[in-house]
Simulated scan of single mutants.
Amino acid sequence: MSLPKPPRRKRAAAAQLALLPMALTVLGVYIGTVLWSVRISFSSSKIFPTSDFVGLAQYQRLFNAERWIVSLHNLAIFGALFIAACLVLGFLLAVFLDQRVRGENALRTVFLYPYAMSFVATGLVWQWMLNPELGIQSTVRRLGFPGFEFDWIVSQDKVIYTLVIAAVWQASGLVMAVLLAGLRGIDESLWNAARIDGVPRWRYYLSVVLPQLGPAFGTAFVLLAVGVVKVYDVVIAMTQGGPGNASEVPAKFIIDSLFNRANVGLASAASTVMLLTVLALLLPWWYARSVRSRAGAQA
């Protein structure tokens, strides 16, 4: 004899009660520390936090620091190239797998596997491959091409592009998975109708598929953009921010200011700037999704 199920309202209350410890943890630890960091950014804190108030002095000092400006410039280059390359390559991989090719499951695993690796492991692998004395350049020269050069990782003008190569190799599989899910949600009858009308496949993808993948592209863009803002591991593993400050990024500037230069106030100001950057990326995306959800509920 089966026991009667508790009312739906009681089940919902029990689920909310089970989530309460996690909610309190998020509110107390995450949001609390964020607010504390913002408050410290308006103080003159050095090694230890202080409760004084100096207004925007730390922010003025931050944007007068050449190293911070260089890090923002590097982040802009890295972010633009990384996001564009991942979206293009991920879309092409998704379109390729959408053709129901043989061994699709194995190929999907291979393409997505790099994303399962940590950025540290990715950075170390690519550091070895791009090392002029050990990697691609050395191998090609031993094959009989002594004039071949591929020393971007030790070039101040080109080192940022090596970070893009490594990051795209790792993250493009994630974009592929997101866009492939979007492709599989498109009604196949559209392609059948287009084929009957003699529409070439490239035209079908350009005029029919791409407009319907807007939400998937938006999700992929937000994921990539947030990853750009917090990029750190691959820089440390590959270049340590060098040569010089040629591959410096804001996250490394923050960590160095906090631990190596013992400047809590400056590090908190930089962290607050990056937090505002992330919110500027997430809030429009969240708002657009909310609008679409309400529109779908009213339809």
Rank of each mutant, 00 (worst) to 15 (best):
A295G: 01
P21S: 03
L134Y: 12
L3F: 13
F111P: 12
L210E: 02
V38D: 10
L72K: 08
A237W: 02
V26W: 13
I77D: 08
G90C: 07
S71D: 06
R142D: 15
Q156V: 11
L130K: 07
V95F: 11
V264K: 05
R292G: 03
L87R: 12
V38P: 12
M129D: 00
F53Y: 15
Y204M: 11
P250E: 10
R39M: 10
T109D: 08
W191A: 05
L62K: 10
D98P: 02
A269Q: 08
G244K: 04
H73P: 00
V228W: 09
R294E: 14
L179Y: 05
L282W: 02
P49R: 05
G214T: 14
I165R: 07
L75M: 15
V264Y: 03
L112I: 11
A57H: 01
Q212A: 03
Y113R: 02
G79F: 07
A85K: 05
L163H: 10
A295F: 07
K230H: 05
L275R: 03
W126V: 04
S2A: 13
L19Q: 11
A181F: 07
A246K: 05
T277D: 03
Q127V: 01
R201M: 08
A225I: 07
I136L: 15
W286I: 07
L62F: 05
N245Y: 15
A216I: 03
P250C: 05
A270L: 05
N263T: 01
V159G: 02
A295T: 08
S247Y: 10
V278N: 04
P6F: 11
I196N: 05
L92T: 01
D157I: 00
V278H: 04
L17V: 08
F145P: 02
S41W: 00
W152E: 07
V154L: 10
A177P: 12
P132S: 09
V175C: 11
S71G: 12
L112N: 09
A121K: 01
G173W: 13
A297F: 12
F42R: 00
G103T: 04
M274K: 03
K158F: 11
